[in-house]
Design a protein around this nucleic acid. Structure first.
Lengths: 213, 213
DNA sequence: GAAAATTATGAACAGTGTTTAGTAAATCTT
DNA sequence: AAGATTTACTAAACACTGTTCATAATTTTC
């Protein structure tokens, strides 16, 4: 077999994997994870359902691939903050980026953080949530930088990091599930959900700022 | 038909609804929500699958019923705190109770707060999350009481409440999904997950206490 | 007892993820 | 170019799922 042919076929194989993933992602975000079938994905890319199993072992493996891509997307939201030198400003930027990611990609957010199906999958192959590990390391490092600038004095950086992560994750999850909207409707006037999230976040930032000196 | 007979049959009907619910709950917590079938529930109570549909319209209605019971259980965790007169102590107690509920009933916790299937169901019949509304009202009232004792001065009570809710919910969700455990393993020595949650919570309480006077 | 009303079910429908045996096509060898 | 071989694909089936409906069994009423 010629070398160029092998490459072309390999490329075609990668293309089809992409097509499957794109179709799956589109259907997942449209109809939800459980509600989209392999048959629907197959129909969208105009192949037989069985063909999909030549490129992905499982439906789980497809979900897993999307999970992986979602994480890379989240990291890309953080990467625009590298130029911010002041650590607390960078921390604030991370919070805003995290919220923005969750608001703009609610399905991906739930897929990454709150779906239990891929979790068992992730529990088996550890490599995956090392990405989550690295993300936490970035947060932890930023918190320590903040401490060098007088913030969070007297606190254990790991614990402050856990509190921050919890608050951001809770806020984003409550928004994505709709609970925040439900409870907020009557209580916070007629400001939009996004405005409510923003003001809640700003309040949290104010709380954190009180820990300075 | 005799009156006593009608009552007996009515009681039997209620009994069977309970049996179905208990079997469903047991299977859900054991195998997960999506992985337990109507047929499995039917087999567990030794009835035909079709019989279940005489007592519950849907699988969704069963989930919904469990959702409702889960909320009542959460409220029962809060009810033991009524005797605490100091509002901030009561607030701390609520946090601890919330954590305890999530740790002791992880499936119910995810069912109530982070499952998207019953959410659409809930979105249609509004009565349900009024329970969530009332829970938030209790939190809001407690926060206001705290403000009357010098806590959270200068803050909007609704926003402080949202921050508190987010933090607690985020912490419990991260724990239940396993993310907290995964990230914590390497980072926080060999203290148990429960200890880690407790210390994170205490750190959060310390942060809130800094907002006093 | 017979008639009426209730309660339970077997069988079927349309859907799911997944596997396998077999076909069609592209490639390599001669 | 022709035949052999590897590759790419698919139709059909399997064992499931939630759900419905005609039918059967049981219980209540008369």
């Amino acid at each position: 077999m010629l070398m160029g042919v092998a490459e072309r076929k390999e490329r075609h194989k990668e293309d089809l994997k992409r097509e499957i993933l794109d179709a799956a992602k589109s259907l997942f975000t449209e109809k939800g994870l459980e509600a989209t079938s392999i048959r629907a994905i197959a129909e969208k890319i105009e192949y037989s359902p069985a063909t999909i199993y030549l490129y992905y072992k499982d439906k789980n493996e497809i979900v897993h691939a999307l999970h992986s891509e979602g994480f890379k997307l989240l990291v890309s939201y953080f990467n625009v903050l590298n130029h911010i030198t002041h650590p607390f400003e960078r921390l604030k930027g991370m919070g805003r980026a995290y919220i923005q990611f969750a608001v703009q990609n609610p399905d991906t957010y739930m897929l990454i953080f709150n779906m239990d199906e891929p979790l068992q999958h992730v529990a088996n192959c550890f490599e995956e949530w090392n990405e989550g590990d690295r993300a936490f390391d970035i947060l932890l490092k930023t918190v320590k930088d903040c401490q060098n600038h007088g913030y969070f004095s007297g606190f254990v950086p790991e614990q402050i990091s856990f509190v921050i992560w919890s608050t951001m994750h809770g806020l984003c999850t409550l928004r994505t599930t709709g609970h925040l909207g439900h409870v907020a409707v009557a209580r916070s006037g007629n400001q939009s959900l996004d405005a409510l999230m923003a003001s809640t976040f700003e309040t949290f930032v104010t709380v954190l700022e009180k820990l300075k000196n």
